[in-house]
Computed example of a mutant assay.
Amino acid sequence: MSLPPDSQSHDPPWGPAATVAWTLTALLVGVLVATGFYAIWAGDEVRPGSTMSDGVLIAFGTFISTPVQLGIVIFAAQLRRWPPADYLGLVSPRRVEMMIALGFIIALNLVFDGILYAAGREVVPTFQVEAWRTAVDAGWLPWLLLAIIVVAPVGEEVVFRGFLYRGLAKPGWEVHAIGAIALAWALLHIQYDWLGMAQIFLAGLVLGWFRWASGSTLLTIAMHILINLQSMIETWIKMEYFS
């Protein structure tokens, strides 16, 4: 399944320190811009439940911050005189890779749900329940679903498994890069408890391995979308039939 390493026919990618700096800049600027736009949009009206688990805030923030973050990493790639698609690994995977990835995602979701069930924990975390409820109350559920299932996976994969991976995965250091990126990605999801973050870390390792093996961030985007889709389907089942 492995493909040759990504082509280095262009200027060298950003080094690890510069790559981390660009990534942090993209994430921080995205959050700041989204916060500013949300403050302007909301005005003096204080929404009940406007916390980290507020579905409207999640959707709004994702729609605003993601394009900003993508714009910054694309700009950084162009500064190295790379076509952004090549730098970020936005190349089509092979059909067999897509089939294997699908099997991995199904197995991964089953294992995660089994771990939660065996530990006596709720399969659907409280954060997702509250996000769903507040989005429904505000009439924002379709936008929340679009943000979580499509927009967030695209943004996170391009920034983490695309841009960050390109700068950290030097020859011989791919395994270290996969682990470091998975850890950083898990720590970004502070809305979950330690078990949820551990699951995200393990999922990040799987996504990172497929990024290395296929050379395609498009493949990890598709895998991430499937993970979030399954999560939202489980939330829908809980809210509609077990609430």
Rank of each mutant, 00 (worst) to 15 (best):
L146F: 08
V68L: 06
G55N: 04
V46G: 09
A76S: 08
M52V: 13
G162Q: 01
F127D: 10
T66Y: 01
F163V: 03
I64W: 00
G139M: 07
I72R: 00
S53P: 01
I100R: 11
P142G: 05
S92A: 15
S50N: 14
G103K: 03
F160R: 00
V129A: 14
I72M: 06
I72N: 02
F160L: 05
L90G: 09
A138G: 06
L90S: 07
V159C: 03
T66A: 12
G162I: 04
L79Y: 04
P142T: 05
D113H: 11
A119R: 14
V68P: 01
A101P: 08
D54C: 07
G61H: 02
T51L: 12
I115Q: 09
V136T: 12
A152C: 03
L141E: 09
E45T: 12
F160C: 06
L88W: 04
V56C: 06
W140Y: 13
G155L: 07
S53A: 15
L70N: 00
P125D: 13
V151A: 01
I106Y: 13
G55Y: 00
D113F: 12
G120Y: 03
R133S: 12
G103P: 06
A77I: 05
A59T: 00
S65Q: 05
W132M: 13
Q69D: 02
Q78D: 11
T51F: 12
P153V: 03
D44Y: 10
M98R: 13
V159I: 15
D137I: 13
G103R: 03
V111F: 15
A77T: 02
E130L: 13
L88Q: 05
L108F: 15
V150N: 00
Q78M: 14
E157V: 08
V124N: 05
L110F: 15
G43F: 13
V159H: 01
I72D: 02
E157W: 01
R94T: 12
S53R: 08
A76T: 02
N109Q: 12
P142E: 04
G61Y: 01
M99G: 10
E97I: 07
D137Y: 06
M99Y: 10
A76V: 02
L146V: 13
A59E: 00
